[in-house]
Design a protein around this nucleic acid. Structure first.
Lengths: 219, 219
DNA sequence: GAAATTATTTAAGTTTGTCTAAATAATAAT
DNA sequence: ATTATTATTTAGACAAACTTAAATAATTTC
């Protein structure tokens, strides 16, 4: 099936929002894609026509098996390009998202399989997210929680869910990146801020906002 | 200035057709872009508005200095991606054109400059065409003629102007590629076909059609 | 459970880049 | 120098992916 860039972006966003299996809401999708709910309704009809989603008026959207396959292809392309940009062109992990967002729409099986080979068939991308293989299979995302909900003391940073460059720049300044080990010193109830310490660095206090967007797993 | 993919393709095509300095014709551009003359007229008005071309009704199109700069950027991106595909992903030179056609529209100065560094700042692409540098400067294409007009006996293949994969496949089968040295054995007047010989290979006869699309320079 | 709020859809219109068909200009042919 | 031919432009329409404004459905609240 030949999809437009817009269609691919919808499919990818639905995949991202669907998570478990609950239906994705028109409004949520509009917000994710920075568009208007009315546009989402329009597109939903088209994607249903193409059998990529199931959609009934007022009932929200879920990917069909076909749609899921498509989504995984796009995710695969995105994450492989991110690897390329970081590993080969020395971009830092916070810069690559927007670029990969464009590169991912070059559709060529052969290109992607060669790119994957060239990169040594990586299985996780620079943000720590798993890369689907050519058949759409991938490691299940490791059990991770956001930093504000972590219950262990010693943690590793596994991903940063917010893709805004403001946050990423902040983390960079504090030399917190993928794989950084940190320790929770204190939890301040009144504003839910968290004091953390990275080895060889002074302790810093992080707002709830920031903590929600840093994904960690217990060390 | 922020151009759409379509606009970039027009600018690139005008650049390609302009060669020396004569104005590009509406029909020629329509043919090159596989679209209709009416569409070209429409787009010409828009590009004139943006000061990328000069255009007067019925007088044809020429790039403005601004337009030329844009064209060279697109050409640079295209040719660098071709290098990447051939050098790093082991594509053969006849496969890369279409892919580069898509990759070239990812606009990021930083991406392109890093890609160029990664490739060792190449100055010619896999088809033998020079790659503009970041300022749009490039080696002038070496003096080359099409094979049907060559007057020397011993020649080197420097480029293949037709980008159709049919021709490229044919050349591949005859193991004629960039840098291949060949010798003209005979010129048959009645159909302008040419008999050539590649070292260690049996002599072959090539139609005028094919000869027109093989660029060579004297050895 | 009726009223208020929020979410979703419909209707109508916009922009970009295309198209066809008809009109007009430029060029070539006799 | 007409006429015929070819090239170019205009006019009107269309598809994709948007938008805003209004209408309708679903959900919450009291």
């Amino acid at each position: 099936m030949n999809l437009s860039v817009a269609e691919e972006n919808y499919i990818k966003a639905i995949y991202k929002l669907q998570e478990g299996e609950q239906a994705v809401t028109t409004n949520a999708l509009a917000y994710e894609l920075e568009t208007k709910p009315a546009s989402v309704t329009d597109m939903a009809k088209k994607l249903k026509e193409k059998k990529l989603i199931s959609y009934e008026k007022y009932q929200g959207i879920t990917l069909s098996p076909e749609g899921r396959k498509t989504a995984l292809q796009v995710v695969r392309r995105h994450r492989l390009w991110e690897c390329f940009l970081v590993d080969k062109l020395s971009f830092s992990w916070e810069e690559v998202h927007e670029l990969a967002e464009e590169l991912e729409h070059v559709r060529s099986e052969k290109l992607i399989s060669r790119l994957s080979d060239f990169l040594g068939n990586p299985v996780i991308d620079p943000h720590g997210d798993p890369i689907p293989d050519a058949n759409g299979r991938m490691a299940k995302p490791r059990p991770q929680t956001s930093l504000d909900q972590a219950n262990a003391r010693r943690l590793v940073v596994t991903a940063v869910s917010d893709q805004s460059s403001a946050l990423l720049a902040f983390l960079n300044a504090k030399s917190i990146k993928l794989g950084t080990q940190l320790e929770i010193i204190a939890h301040y109830e009144f504003d839910n801020s968290i004091e953390i310490k990275v080895k060889h660095q002074p302790a810093i206090t992080i707002s709830e906002q920031v903590a929600k967007n840093i994904m960690v797993r217990p060390l």
